[in-house]
Design a protein around this nucleic acid. Structure first.
Lengths: 180, 180
DNA sequence: ACCTGAACACCGTTCAAGT
DNA sequence: ACCTGAACACCGTTCAAGT
């Protein structure tokens, strides 16, 4: 049985998107591809590296062409929500391989028109931290609801979009009154 | 060999604080207490519940007496940094048992003087998400550095405190120009 | 009431040996 | 070059049986 790196990444991505991080194991990927677990390590260094390239794929449909921070933040969240546990995976990869989290670079570019490179960096990371924190909470909650360990709170049923944008607008508002 | 719930929580907390989340296993706790793994389940429902009470202990030295959001955010971060992977654990527990994340309530109270309950809630959660996102990244990075899988970036050696406060101030700045 | 022993169903990773 | 077989060192959780 022959396997390619692409097949491994594809299968890992599909497992994550459809069944979440707890279902994404090396052994499960190997099983689905009809191969022994050890075979994967000829194409991929370890699980961390696999997660990094899966995270890159999650962020692939984030439009680098965003013209303003607000819509960049929205697009970032949308990309994360397309995949189960998307925020958690990207969050981990951010520490492991920061350059993979492309929204940071996009936001940095957008803030650079108004702020110096140092402040633009901090500003971009502020937005990224907020988005990852917000989406991580809503996805973690969704996983727990799905597992039946916690029931949907009435406040959740409310308007997550509205709450999300409230925070984004507050941050961008505060940043716009910052000078360099 | 007799074990109490308190001993279990104490040992779990110490393992997390000193060796991080990857070292905090039910089997390790049981081994350290000289008991079989199954014995723990007489005192604790499962690992999730154990993590929840450990998270509560992490937040114990967060002063509920904070008088302004800025120092509350700082105290929140300080409490998280005292324990390895503190942000990750609290992040998970936030979805599982939100009421355990006491800084949210404290911030809510502080914002309530200026904002209505709905906006005060969103404002508190914006700050909480930012703090958790920020600290999660710095702690994840620290774990990877400690494991030797990634080397310290020069930007990290910079001023995390300054970057942190930049974001906090931007958020609070933006929130203060919000009316209800 | 509380614990042991033992199992069930999993993990990530390595590596000699095969083709 | 690439994979198998098999192991190593782990996980969380359950549960009959013992005391």
């Amino acid at each position: 049985m022959k396997v390619t790196r692409t097949q491994i990444v594809d299968r890992a991505y599909d497992l994550l998107r459809d069944h979440g991080l707890s279902s994404l194991s090396m052994r499960r990927v190997a099983l689905d591809l009809g191969v022994q677990p050890g075979a994967l390590y000829y194409h991929v260094a370890n699980k961390q590296e696999l997660l990094a390239v899966v995270a890159a794929r999650v962020l692939e449909d984030f439009p680098a062409s965003a013209t303003d921070p607000r819509s960049a933040a929205e697009a970032f969240r949308t990309a994360l929500l397309r995949v189960r546990d998307g925020a958690e995976v990207v969050s981990f990869v951010q520490a492991y391989r920061p350059e993979i989290v492309t929204p940071t670079a996009t936001l940095h570019r957008l803030f650079s028109t108004r702020l110096g490179p140092r402040h633009a960096d901090w500003a971009a990371r502020t937005v990224v931290h907020y988005v990852l924190g917000f989406v991580a909470e809503e996805q973690n909650r969704a996983e727990l609801v799905h597992a039946g360990v916690v029931e949907e709170a009435p406040s959740d049923a409310g308007k997550p979009d509205e709450a999300f944008l409230f925070g984004v607008d507050a941050i961008l508002n505060g940043l716009s009154s910052t000078r360099t």
